[in-house]
Simulated assay, not measured.
Amino acid sequence: MSAAPRISVFGSVNMDLVAYVDRVPGSGETVTGTAFRQVPGGKGANQAVAAARVGAEVAFLGAVGEDAFGEELRANLVDHGVDVSGLRTVPGVSGVAHIVVDGDGGNSIIVVPGANGEVTGVAEGDAATIEGGAALLLQLELPMKAVVSAARTGRDLGVPVYLTPAPARELPDELLSAVDVLVPNQHEAAAITGREDPYEALTALLEIVPEVLLTLGGDGSLHGRRGGEPVHVPARRVKAVDTTAAGDTFCGSFAVARAQGRGPEEAMRFAAAAASLSVQRHGASSSMPTRDEVEALLEG
């Protein structure tokens, strides 16, 4: 296996405030929770930690607020070996996510952007961090103009650009034209294409980007490249206790495996193993496995 690849993540960092319940309350209803946890998260930070834990050298680009959450979020990334020299501190509060996890491990999330909303584009010095990397990972929890700015920078520097289109929203052509690998889940793929069938959605997506990794939850993942045949890899069967950040774990792990020379199918199996370990633990970044844990599971 090759040396640790260098990966940049331009994205969000939030403090996750997680309530666990047997079932999610309806409108106007109050239910009693079973537990509460405060865990560092944010789709960008989650992908950064996931990639770092499975063997990449990761640099994170984004923003936190001047509050106590900001200090904790920065420290969490540092503790996981992520380079935070590109993580700015801006006036105001850090981003937060209010998450409700039900008895089956499913979740619903409200994100309040905070400092993430102050990121308007690639800052001075960010391009130097991105340049020469094996991948640039993007999501949609930052303002769209910021994501477009980063994607263009990656394209201009010849760095493969991965985009997780979440939260789902309309994707401008100027963004899609700079994306090398689109990583939606099945709901996001359906929202983008209007096609509920994953294979039909995959075909439609490959008309606008050259490579797609479509995650299907308990049904595994589906990969396609223009001119090639689709590849499906099933999910590992485990008892999920918390699916928060499972998709981010999958994406970060897949990007690292690809950067280290694994083919799409092998990288999907590596990412599936990582995600299966994460859903058996509570929290976001706190649930992500190490490379040794993933390799042990694959060997077993």
Rank of each mutant, 00 (worst) to 15 (best):
V238T: 06
G125Q: 09
G86M: 09
R236I: 13
R281Q: 08
E71N: 07
V64Y: 06
P113N: 13
L140T: 12
G41C: 06
E196N: 13
L138P: 03
G263H: 12
V279M: 02
A271E: 09
V82R: 06
A127T: 11
L73A: 03
E295Y: 02
T30Y: 13
V93I: 09
A296E: 15
E131M: 03
G227W: 07
G117H: 05
H80R: 00
V82F: 12
E207G: 14
F69C: 12
G70P: 11
G158R: 11
L222A: 10
G106Q: 10
T30S: 13
L142V: 05
V39K: 00
P5E: 04
R23F: 10
E229H: 07
P210I: 02
S285Y: 00
T244R: 00
S276I: 01
G300H: 14
D126R: 05
D242W: 01
A75Y: 04
G92M: 06
V147Q: 03
V78Y: 00
H282L: 07
G41F: 08
V39R: 05
T153A: 10
V147S: 08
L213Y: 05
V58N: 10
L163N: 08
L297P: 03
A135Q: 02
D104C: 08
L182W: 09
H98N: 05
V148R: 05
L205D: 12
A204F: 00
A259G: 11
G252I: 05
A19L: 12
E229C: 01
R6P: 00
T32F: 13
R6G: 11
G105R: 00
V49P: 08
V49D: 09
L157T: 00
Q280K: 01
H282Q: 11
R88P: 05
M15L: 15
M288I: 01
Q139V: 15
T34E: 07
L163S: 06
S278C: 02
V231N: 01
